[in-house]
Write a protein that binds this DNA or RNA. Structure first.
Lengths: 213, 213
DNA sequence: CTGGATCCCTCACGATACTG
DNA sequence: CAGTATCGTGAGGGATCCAG
């Protein structure tokens, strides 16, 4: 394995040698949501060849961005998780995500939306300075994908799964509809139809204030 | 030109399709310092094949990250510059630069340091919250490379070239010595020798407060 | 079934030469 | 100076296979 370098003694070049290879930052994106097994990563990155996933994980492990951990009995399985150094990529990933979201066109016929990409989209659209005031919670149902969003004490918590008792449930037919809607705080999406709301409709305005590109 | 995609409808995936290709972010790094001609970019990215540079510029232009501009007569030459959208990558580039700098080892025998990479390193080490107080200015002479640093009104200005009247001139034999030294505010580097100072030595402490990883 | 390794093919990248 | 043309190599893509 001959390292592919840029021939520059430079922080950015170094960073790109670590996480600039194809698929690497998408792996980091999914691991930022939580530790995952090989197969979980494979499912979240549908089009990645397994040898590439395997190679990336080894490289990221070698660079101490990712740690391979064997779960204690009885699970005994293997999970990959970010090291502290790897976790410090969060800001970069969220900023890149927001930057790219702005020119995200229509989804291609084969484009998928995964749970982790939706969670990342919500996190990247978060504006802490608008998150003061009373706590609020949402449940987002986008096709098969269900996540919940809790804003409390100016902080954000987004994770997979339903949230019984959420202040507002926002539901779209497909994940692809939800994605641009997160970027506009669902304002346009609701006006344009195709979004169903259950709960306190006033919380939608609040969502738009807290989340937008 | 068949676009190489990730098959995901996701802001991060979109961003990586634009600036995730090899060399792309290094081109952006150099253009963040200022508009450049093809040959300037080629010199700053010594190891890039010209056809790859050519291809990247076309792709970045197509994605409206870079604009190709013909200078008015009599120059008549062509420069590449970032669009506003491209300029919004600054934070990402600086954060990645700082992230990578922390694990930047010894320079390889063929590794080079360019003016733009040094300017980027200084900018990425800047801590605005420590930049209050009276204005200060520095001249950094690292081998052949000479840049100047002006901190005024809490803002930073870094550019190529000397600065007559700079409060402190910091000089190292090679650019590679300067790079880690920027990350530690030159504190260790001066103690370890190999750094010459001309001017007010008290300004060195100030430098270390304002610039570090 | 998870967690990969192996194989083969293609195409992007890298090196170099060359042209308007 | 500002690229284009050509060509070899190796990384990525896709499918399959294998061990625990």
């Amino acid at each position: 394995m001959t390292r592919r370098t840029y021939g520059q003694h430079c922080g950015l070049a170094r960073a790109l040698e670590i996480v600039g290879e194809r698929w690497a930052l998408l792996i980091v994106r999914d691991l930022l949501v939580g530790p995952k097994r090989f197969t979980d990563l494979r499912n979240g990155l549908a089009r990645i060849p397994t040898n590439v996933l395997s190679a990336r994980l080894k490289e990221l492990e070698h660079a101490e961005v990712v740690r391979r951990r064997v779960l204690p009995r009885p699970a005994g399985s293997v999970v990959y998780e970010l090291t502290e150094y790897g976790g410090e990529l969060e800001e970069v990933v969220l900023r890149l995500s927001r930057w790219g979201s702005r020119t995200l066109g229509e989804p291609g016929p084969d484009d998928i939306v995964t749970v982790d990409s939706l969670i990342t989209a919500v996190r990247s659209a978060f504006h802490p300075e608008a998150a003061g005031g009373p706590d609020v919670s949402y449940e987002l149902r986008a096709g098969e994908i269900v996540i919940h969003v809790i804003v409390g004490g100016g902080r954000l918590d987004v994770a997979q799964g339903a949230l019984p008792g959420a202040g507002l449930v926002i539901e779209t037919d497909s994940p692809a509809q939800a994605l641009p809607a997160v970027g506009t705080g669902f304002a346009e999406a609701v006006a344009g139809g195709g979004v169903r709301l259950t709960g306190d409709p006033a919380l939608l305005r609040r969502f738009a204030e807290i989340f937008h590109h």
